[in-house]
């Protein structure tokens, strides 16, 4: 009985051996094509920004005026806008992210409220950025405007500060969920040792858990920062889109991403377009480097 199938099996195997080679080759080709995709991605950006790099040189990054009509392309206002919004957002979000990380990682790893909190944080990451922008425009902007009136500054409503608040909400999940994982990885033997010496919960967190999870928390902050730097839609909708240098955090401005989003399809001259792409290249390099450093830290932390 089984012998009948033996011959079929052998015939089949020759076919399979050919398929096996084909399959293995296609796996390699696909991995290779992903690599080539990313290399050509970078090359496209570099090649397309060449006209601007050649024409403007270093002045591109330090020039304080962006005036496409006069063919002047200085991106300092956007660099400043990007740094201001991102770091302000980070400053606002970190206490919250770390609080969640400690809450879920140490105080209450289980329980319905922790599940609820965890799902809520995941939800914050899931909401599309255009929705944050929309909400910001219609709810946050009026709030900020009344705050500005109270403070006695020009009540734009939109601007750097509003963008930072929106960004802060959006980036909480990144540092929070990574921080939670890192805090969970602190060996309980270390914690027990500290407790046995009579330390309080707070002292254990400060002296044992946070120092141990330090680099992991740092990586979470870096990933948050990378997200904040590259975020486009929410910021574009509430930052005010002006190329003037912001004088205070309540002024409108522009970030690198928002200026690209606003002006790319309108860029008529080739130098204009090229300088926007160069801006994209700078943004790409900065966020990628920050992300890679963050990932390196996580990898080192988790394989220790």
């Amino acid at each position: 009985m089984m012998n009948v199938w033996k011959n079929v099996k052998i015939k089949r195997a020759f076919h399979q051996i050919r398929m096996e080679k084909f399959f293995k080759t296609s796996l390699v080709l696909i991995a290779l094509s992903i690599l080539i995709l990313v290399i050509s991605f970078l090359l496209t950006l570099v090649v397309q920004s060449m006209p601007s790099i050649k024409a403007l040189g270093f002045g591109f990054l330090v020039g304080k005026t962006w005036d496409p009509v006069a063919n002047v392309y200085g991106t300092y206002p956007f660099l400043l806008g990007t740094l201001l919004t991102s770091f302000l957002a980070l400053l606002i979000s970190i206490p919250f992210s770390f609080a969640i990380a400690i809450f879920l990682g140490e105080y209450f790893p289980r329980g319905w409220f922790s599940e609820f909190l965890k799902n809520s944080i995941e939800l914050i990451a899931a909401v599309p950025s255009v929705i944050y922008g929309f909400w910001g425009l219609f709810v946050l902007v009026p709030l900020v405007r009344s705050l500005e009136i109270k403070l006695g500054v020009t009540p734009y409503g939109i601007g750097i500060f509003t963008s930072s608040v929106i960004l802060a909400i959006m980036i909480i999940p990144y540092a929070a969920s990574l921080g939670r994982e890192m805090i969970r990885m602190v060996p309980s033997s270390l914690k027990e040792a500290a407790y046995s010496l009579g330390a309080t919960r707070y002292e254990v967190i400060r002296a044992v858990i946070l120092p141990y999870a330090k680099s992991g928390l740092m990586a979470g902050v870096l990933l948050s920062l990378g997200r904040a730097l590259g975020e486009t839609m929410a910021v574009t909708m509430v930052i005010g889109n002006t190329s003037l240098i912001p004088k205070s955090i309540f002024d409108p401005g522009n970030t690198m991403a928002s200026v690209i989003a606003n002006e790319f399809t309108e860029a008529a001259s080739s130098l204009y377009l090229s300088s926007l792409i160069e801006l994209g290249l700078v943004l790409f390099l900065v966020t990628v480097v920050i992300n890679l450093i963050g990932k390196r830290i996580i990898k080192r932390f988790t394989t220790e």
Binding site: M1, V4, W5, V8, K9, R12, A13, Q16
Partner: peptide
């Protein structure tokens, strides 16, 4: 046999 993609009848 099955994962090799060999077509066999149920009885066999």
């Amino acid at each position: 046999y099955k994962l090799n993609g060999m077509k066999m009848n149920k009885a066999d």
